[in-house]
């Protein structure tokens, strides 16, 4: 019932509507698009190096003759997957850590928040940058874990402070007085009532992770070749963006559109889920 109301309100919100449409189109492009093109992203066309967009190579080709259309979409797939996974992991972690710290208080709280502080103090860019090139052989999932590990702390603090106030809510007290175990109360009464915050946060985390991945890859600290992501493509393209603009324009444009559409949805969700806020 409530979800229907929320979805209804989401689509009445113009920002969110445009955002969702754009996102659906982008995802479709990333996953269906490759079947429409005539080249695979691993193919190399030795007759066309650095050729501008044409009927054959829609978005032009790279220095080594890869089809830019295929490569870019492949990169976008990776960026989307990374964004989703990072958001899922980091928001989940934030919810659990924040809710436990807030609900149990005492030394559990002290210990967890201390960990949060430590992670906040560590320069995440630096740590990821040192570790990730060493993961060259390993799967890119490690990179996702690394990104997620540095993305949850602020949210968990917010979750914690909201839990502190939820803890005193009468329905939580009622559950305590019924004799329900505390961990069950957290998952039954606390986390669901933070769902608005968590959904919004997860959405915005997707775009943050997409940007984060791109930023790290920009310096070569992210996704490692031969694999590609929007970040690696932009890095490559920006080096000679003036001479061969198609190398830069397509990945950069898609990245901006992707982030923009997700942010629009996130902001629209905030309106739809939280009638009190005007944001």
């Amino acid at each position: 019932m409530r979800s229907k109301v929320v979805i209804g309100r989401l689509f009445r919100n113009r920002q969110a509507r445009y955002g969702s449409i754009a996102l659906i189109l982008l995802v479709a492009l990333a996953y269906i698009g490759p079947f429409l093109g005539s080249y695979d992203w691993t193919d190399k066309d030795f007759l066309a190096f650095l050729s501008p967009p044409s009927a054959d190579h829609w978005w032009g080709t790279t220095t080594i003759g890869q089809d830019m259309y295929a490569v870019t979409l492949r990169g976008m797939q990776k960026s989307i997957i990374i964004g989703l996974l990072v958001a899922l992991i980091s928001t989940g972690l934030a919810a659990v850590v924040g809710a436990f710290a807030g609900y149990f208080g005492g030394w559990v709280d002290k210990f967890l928040m201390w960990g949060v502080d430590l992670l906040l103090v560590l320069p995440s860019f630096l740590i990821i940058a040192i570790i990730s090139p060493r993961l060259r052989g390993a799967t890119w999932l490690w990179f996702v874990v690394l990104l997620a590990a540095f993305a949850w702390m602020i949210t968990s603090r917010v979750v914690r402070s909201m839990t502190l106030s939820l803890r005193e809510r009468e329905y939580v007290l009622a559950a305590v007085y019924m004799g329900i175990p505390r961990w069950k109360i957290i998952f039954r009464h606390i986390v669901p009532n933070l769902s608005s915050l968590l959904i919004i946060d997860a959405t915005l985390n997707v775009s943050a992770a997409v940007i984060g991945e791109a930023a790290l890859s920009f310096f070569g600290f992210g996704i490692q070749p031969p694999d590609v992501s929007l970040g690696t493509l932009i890095a490559e393209g920006s080096r000679n963006a003036t001479g061969y603009p198609w190398l830069f324009a397509f990945p950069a444009g898609l990245l901006v559109l992707l982030v923009l559409s997700i942010n629009l949805i996130g902001d629209g969700l905030r309106d739809a889920l939280d009638p009190g806020s005007n944001s």
């Binding site: 409530r2 809510r169 009468e170 329905y171 007290l173 009622a174 559950a175 007085y177 019924m178 004799g179 329900i180 009464h189 669901p192 009532n193 769902s195």
Partner: peptide, 30 residues
């Protein structure tokens, strides 16, 4: 044997649960 009714009828019921589940919660817990 010892139960409580709270002051604020807005805050006393978990807004994310249907009323049936709210009333059933103590029954299931016991």
């Amino acid at each position: 044997d010892l139960q409580i009714v709270f002051q604020d009828p807005m805050a006393a019921l978990d807004p994310r649960m249907p009323v049936g589940d709210i009333i059933a919660e103590p029954l299931r817990a016991h």
